[in-house]
Design a binder for these strands. Structure first.
Lengths: 185, 185
DNA sequence: GCAAATTAATGATTTATTCAAG
DNA sequence: CTTGAATAAATCATTAATTTGC
């Protein structure tokens, strides 16, 4: 609420640290997106000048913003790459590949094999994957039987890859309660 | 009505497309609410396995469900956010894709001169994706403005790089539009 | 009550962007 | 500079809800 309270000279926050307004962040993000990564001193000065219209800002804030943003962006990208492997890329992987396991057989994670501990039982305490770190596991996937080749017409071939139900377990069971049903993760 | 007619192997519908049962949707929603957004192949497999108890399902259905749900959730949140911005007046409520103007980098006397050749306007509400989602900012290393792929899209197809004006968005605005605000560089 | 017609949801495809290996 | 990998956005398409006339 305070981030845009003062239109120009941000009086809201105690001047502990720069608190960018939404507009400032937008402009900075756009500059970043446009390819600007390490602005020159001159550019920093200009950016700061113009952003001062939206709130209190100093040149060093701009400098730090770009530095932090560059680093975090790189970090995020790296994490994203390492943690998510191809499930599906268009219909190449998921739909056309006979065995995804061949492609996705990643090595066994050392000790982090199981997934999302928080979810394992009751997920009532909502685990949120935050921007700082979404816990993600490169679990070795066992076979994924996604082999479909569907063309533009329906009549889809249902290779029911995972066709076993709880009836295997013997008795006729009711639907398990919702919260228990999540335990498979 | 018939959506759960077949308890397990959905024989009800003609296999046009997956028709999730209420239980399946419940579980998926619960997982989503718990923070799961892009399940790994392994997770998809498990989810599909366990949801098959409630009806016919395939892995790709799980995958698509999460994709769609994530996208639509994000979309809804974005719209909600943008509509709940009574703060700054007029020009702030640009919703989706609109590329209003392009701007050029003025020639910097220095050699370090980033380009910013064609900027599409970015959504102003993009600074908050959702409460459980990371702020996504992207770098772009498009240095020399050679876009070899421009498409015919309906929403944004502005190639006239010299056409822009403030008046597009209204008459008197407090803040210049974002893409123009970059012209100070 | 019931279906044809219409609308709203949502499953499934296609397209556009992105970073980063090569 | 090119291309691979992986989305996320946008779009297409089909199913369910619902409206409507009988």
């Amino acid at each position: 609420m305070e981030s845009k309270g003062g239109s120009s000279s941000g009086s809201t926050s105690k001047c502990g640290r720069w608190n960018p307004t939404a507009e400032q962040v937008s402009v900075l993000s756009e500059l970043f997106r446009s390819g600007l990564r390490t602005p020159t001193t001159d550019q920093i000065q200009r950016i700061s000048n113009h952003l001062s219209f939206y709130g209190k800002i100093e040149s060093k804030n701009v400098f730090y913003w770009f530095q932090n943003h560059k680093a975090r962006d790189r970090h995020n990208k790296r994490r994203k790459l390492s943690s998510s492997f191809p499930h599906h890329s268009k219909h190449l992987n998921l739909l056309h590949c006979q065995s995804l396991a061949e492609m996705y057989q990643v090595s066994e994670p050392e000790n982090n094999n199981r997934v999302i501990e928080t979810l394992q039982l009751f997920p009532l305490n909502s685990y949120v994957e935050s921007e700082s770190e979404k816990l993600r596991v490169h679990a070795n996937d066992d076979e994924n039987g996604d082999h479909q080749h569907h063309h533009h017409h329906q009549c889809m071939d249902h290779d029911d890859d995972t066709m076993f139900s709880y009836t295997l377990m013997g008795e006729q069971m009711e639907y398990p309660p919702l919260d228990l049903r999540l335990s498979f993760l």
